[in-house]
């Protein structure tokens, strides 16, 4: 990764994450087909809902014949972390037009967010529309295509877990976290490690009494507060 904020640079920066989207997209298509969704509905969900892991939640709730409002509310909870990511990202696009802001926001994902945050460490703390939109669009196309292919392949493969494809997402989170840790110089490395450790403990004990759909958001909020307090007290 370098400081260039161009379309070719964005393509190069996004390429590694594309393989993650392919893995999870294929897995989603296969799982959706196995649960009884047609390839058309699988693809429509990837186009319209476009919510990565939350789409797996939707499929399992649909299969369990849950009421529509409870499905929508679950997805809102799982994706409420998007509000936090958009709030973090939006100030870097203040100089762009409203329509470009909405476009960047509409296709934002965990991975494009993390990529953008990583990019800031190389680009002198700047982001722009061409770079981010390219990263977003590549992810979006890859996700749609691979879930369609997965749904079609679903006739031949019954359990995608066997191949470890579902780990692509987790591996991506690990990679993006590590790259952020070593390149973000705005927060001291030791403080970042302490916050990561705090998150581990909070997730472990939070799982006892907080539904996992809500836990990610709550732990993130508490961990950020913890980080600010530690920064002022010790760093």
């Amino acid at each position: 990764m370098n400081g260039e904020l161009t379309v070719p640079a964005a393509t190069k920066d996004t390429l590694p994450t594309v393989f993650g989207y392919i893995g999870i997209g294929l897995a989603f298509g296969i799982v959706g087909k196995a649960a009884g969704l047609s390839p058309l509905l699988v693809t429509l969900m990837s186009i319209i809902t476009y919510a990565g892991s939350a789409q797996f939640v939707v499929v399992s709730l649909l299969a369990a014949h849950s009421p529509i409002l409870s499905i929508i509310f679950s997805v809102f909870l799982v994706n409420s972390r998007m509000i936090l990511m958009s709030t973090t990202l939006a100030p870097y696009f203040k100089h762009e037009s409203m329509i470009k802001n909405i476009l960047v926001g509409s296709l934002l994902t965990d991975e494009s967010f993390a990529l953008g945050m990583n990019k800031l460490n190389y680009s002198d703390n700047h982001l722009n529309f061409p770079w981010f939109n390219t990263a977003n669009l590549l992810a979006y196309m890859t996700w749609i295509l691979s879930s369609l292919v997965g749904a079609v392949l679903g006739n031949f493969i019954s359990n995608p877990e066997k191949f470890g494809l579902d780990f692509a997402l987790v591996a991506m989170f690990i990679g993006l976290l590590y790259l952020q840790l070593i390149s973000d110089r705005s927060i001291k490395f030791n403080l970042q490690l302490i916050v990561v450790g705090f998150v581990l403990v909070a997730i472990y004990f939070g799982l006892i009494f907080i539904p996992s759909s809500l836990l990610i958001l709550l732990v993130t909020l508490v961990a950020c507060t913890f980080g600010v307090v530690m920064k002022h007290a010790f760093f």
Binding site: R81, D110, V199, I203, C224
Partner: peptide, 29 residues
């Protein structure tokens, strides 16, 4: 802004760690 500066590492680690455990409400995962 200072609060939000912790969002990337907090969210990425939360998404990772959540995948390492299986939830059993009322008990340790």
């Amino acid at each position: 802004v200072e609060f939000l500066s912790f969002v990337p590492i907090a969210i990425m680690s939360a998404l990772w760690f959540e995948n390492l455990f299986i939830q059993h409400i009322g008990q340790l995962p």
